[in-house]
Simulated assay, not measured.
Amino acid sequence: MDNSLAELDARVSGCRACPRLVDWREEVARTKRAAFADWTYWGRPVPGFGPPDASLLVIGLAPAAHGGNRTGRMFTGDRSGDVLYAALHEVGLASQPTSLSVDDGLTLYGVRVTSPVHCAPPDNKPTPWERDTCRPWLVTELKLLRPTLRAVVVLGAFGWQAALPAFAEAGWTVPRPRPAFSHGARIALESPTNNPLELFGCFHVSQRNTFTRRLTPEMLRNVLRTAAEAAGLPTRPYAG
């Protein structure tokens, strides 16, 4: 197993295990979007982002083709990231409400952001094989975080289904039958060797959910604040 998250992130960034995802992420990086024609796209797997002693982990789905695949940082440079980091900032878990590039000065406080699939997939839909092939990275990440990790927020049903086996492989006991995803779900995961975890479900911060107000900023803030409290992190009172 890797000795540090920095080593893990470096290895993730060089992964070429899924041919379809490699072809797609590199094609997007070559052709670009007109609005970003002057960018040099990252075009590689996107590692997790946040401090190595995080007590709260946020798990998404996969990098966006013109977001993380362009910038090289999770939820950076796309509208989903705009929503997520604005909420983290309002709760007091991020230094600023925007996430535009890897050198924009954003710092997370006690929070790490990752995903079960590290490459941008066509149509934002990884295959089950791609999800399972990428799982060992998440398992290793969980093991490296376990000395401090206390709570996890999973964004969306795909991430939930992908994360539960990873928690089991990393040493936590997942209830059987496996708990179904729902917004506001809260599940306790015990372990004989790891710290117990509080697992929270939240609708994904996708445009489909935020534009239709299936997920509102207040709903997202509430989940993040509750999870932060479970993780022992200080939060900023909501100003209204």
Rank of each mutant, 00 (worst) to 15 (best):
T107Q: 14
S99R: 14
A62D: 08
V83M: 15
T71K: 02
A86V: 03
G77Y: 08
G77S: 09
Q96L: 00
A163V: 09
G159E: 03
S95G: 11
P147H: 07
H89D: 12
P147C: 03
G81A: 10
E130S: 07
P97H: 06
P52I: 02
I59V: 15
R112T: 02
T107N: 03
V58M: 10
T173D: 11
W172D: 04
A62N: 15
P52S: 14
L144C: 03
L106H: 07
T114Y: 06
G72W: 05
L164V: 05
W137E: 01
G67A: 10
P51N: 07
A170Y: 06
P52Q: 13
P121V: 06
V111K: 02
L145W: 10
S80W: 04
T71G: 05
P126R: 04
K143A: 10
V46F: 08
L84Y: 10
P136R: 01
S101N: 13
A64T: 08
D104G: 07
P97Y: 04
D104T: 05
M74F: 02
R70G: 13
T173L: 13
A65I: 03
G72E: 02
Q96N: 01
D103T: 13
T114K: 06
R135L: 04
G171E: 09
V111E: 00
L93H: 08
R135W: 01
G105Q: 03
P126Q: 04
A62Q: 09
A65W: 05
T71A: 13
P128S: 06
G60W: 01
T98N: 08
A166L: 08
E169R: 14
D78E: 15
T98V: 07
H89C: 07
L144W: 02
Q161I: 05
T173S: 08
T133D: 10
Q161N: 15
R112G: 03
P121K: 01
A151S: 10
D82H: 11
A151G: 02
H66I: 15
A151C: 01
T173K: 06
I59G: 01
P122T: 06
F49D: 02
T148G: 08
G156N: 07
L84W: 09
D78A: 14
A62P: 02
L88T: 12
V83H: 14
R150I: 03
M74C: 10
L84M: 12
T98K: 11
L57E: 01
P147E: 03
C134L: 01
P63G: 11
A65P: 01
W172G: 06
V117E: 02
T148F: 11
A151Q: 04
L61N: 04
T140E: 15
C119W: 13
F75H: 14
L164S: 00
A87W: 09
Q96C: 00
L84S: 09
H118W: 12
A157N: 13
L145H: 12
